[in-house]
């Protein structure tokens, strides 16, 4: 239930982020026991590179606390969509915070909004939609992969978000978003291999008073076809973009500063080869607080295409 609202202490059943380092965090369930492969109930022990954690011990602990591992320590954090996106098991390709933030902004999602999403995928983006629209809005999320839909439904419930979301197993390209949603949505989001096929259904699902549309596509051709269809159906404010986040690596670097002035003067009288080295390269060291890019940057995530359905467009 740790996704519903900010809370201070870990309760049994919470998903908890075990934070080891920037590159190592894990989402664990705060339950004292688990059932192993043989069907036996055993103590819930979580293994890390810094030793094991007896999960029972963290129940009741304040979020943000340091917890001891058998060979070190870690911190426990309350999960949120950002941390969840970084720790969830990668069932499908996922969209990351920079793109998601732009999606939420451009779709103008706020409490009360009704949002339609396809596909659900890992549910990573759904968690962001849910945070932004609860407690007064609703998310309708669709996936053609039955197991994924079931898993996401289960997860939302477990995270305390079940009241704000309906998960559908449905092929929306062929079957649309169900007639119950006709004219019901403030915003539609598509992450599909052929978004153009679902655009007419998005058109139907959006409110008569208008609404916002977004499609995320890795390839430019998908965006091109999507835009062609959007234009045909009377969407406007069509706009495509890429958001690429760059991290700055900040560190203190120590640099040698060499002196060459001494070379203008004749060498001092020969005083042995050992001394040579020292007089040859007089160096001091200076410290710099520097920032640089990491060696590898995300070069592409996807193209975001946004559009507005203006009000009062006849939908017949």
């Amino acid at each position: 239930m740790s996704f519903l609202k900010p809370k201070t202490h870990i309760e049994q059943g919470d998903v908890v982020i075990l934070y080891l380092s920037v590159n190592s965090m894990h989402a664990i369930e705060a339950v004292p026991t688990i059932v192993n492969k043989k069907g036996e109930t055993i103590a819930h022990i979580f293994q890390t590179p810094y030793g094991s954690l007896k999960v029972q011990n963290i129940i009741g602990v304040e979020y943000g606390s340091r917890v001891e591992l058998s060979k070190g320590w870690a911190h426990v954090l309350q999960p949120n969509p950002e941390l969840w996106t970084q720790t969830l098991p990668h069932r499908t390709q996922i969209i990351y915070t920079p793109d998601i933030s732009m999606i939420l902004h451009q779709l103008e999602v706020r409490p009360g909004a009704v949002v339609v999403e396809s596909g659900t995928g890992s549910g990573s983006l759904s968690h962001y939609f849910l945070r932004a629209l609860k407690p007064t809005g609703h998310l309708h999320t669709f996936d053609f992969h039955e197991a994924r839909a079931d898993q996401a439904r289960e997860e939302f419930k477990q995270h305390g978000l079940g009241d704000f979301v309906t998960v559908y197993h449905r092929d929306v390209c062929n079957l649309g978003f169900t007639s119950a949603l006709d004219g019901a949505a403030d915003a539609v989001f598509l992450d599909l291999p052929a978004p153009d096929l679902a655009v007419p259904h998005a058109f139907k699902a959006l409110k008569l008073s208008g609404g916002r549309f977004c499609s995320f596509s890795p390839c430019i051709e998908q965006s091109q076809r999507c835009i062609e269809m959007l234009t045909k159906l009377g969407f406007n404010e069509i706009c495509s973009m890429e958001v690429l986040q760059q991290e700055s690596v900040i560190k203190t670097r120590t640099l040698p500063i060499i002196d060459l002035e001494f070379l203008k003067e004749p060498k001092p009288a020969d005083n042995g080869t050992n001394d040579e080295n020292k007089t040859k390269e007089p160096k001091e060291l200076k410290k710099y607080l520097t920032s640089s890019n990491p060696q590898v940057l995300p070069g592409h995530t996807g193209f975001l295409t946004f559009a507005t359905l203006p009000p009062n467009i006849p939908k017949a």
Binding site: C219, E221, S292, L297, G299
Partner: peptide, 13 residues
């Protein structure tokens, strides 16, 4: 064909 996009990784520096 139909799969045009910038490469997913780029060198940072």
């Amino acid at each position: 064909p139909n799969r045009t996009h910038p490469e997913v990784n780029m060198t940072g520096n």
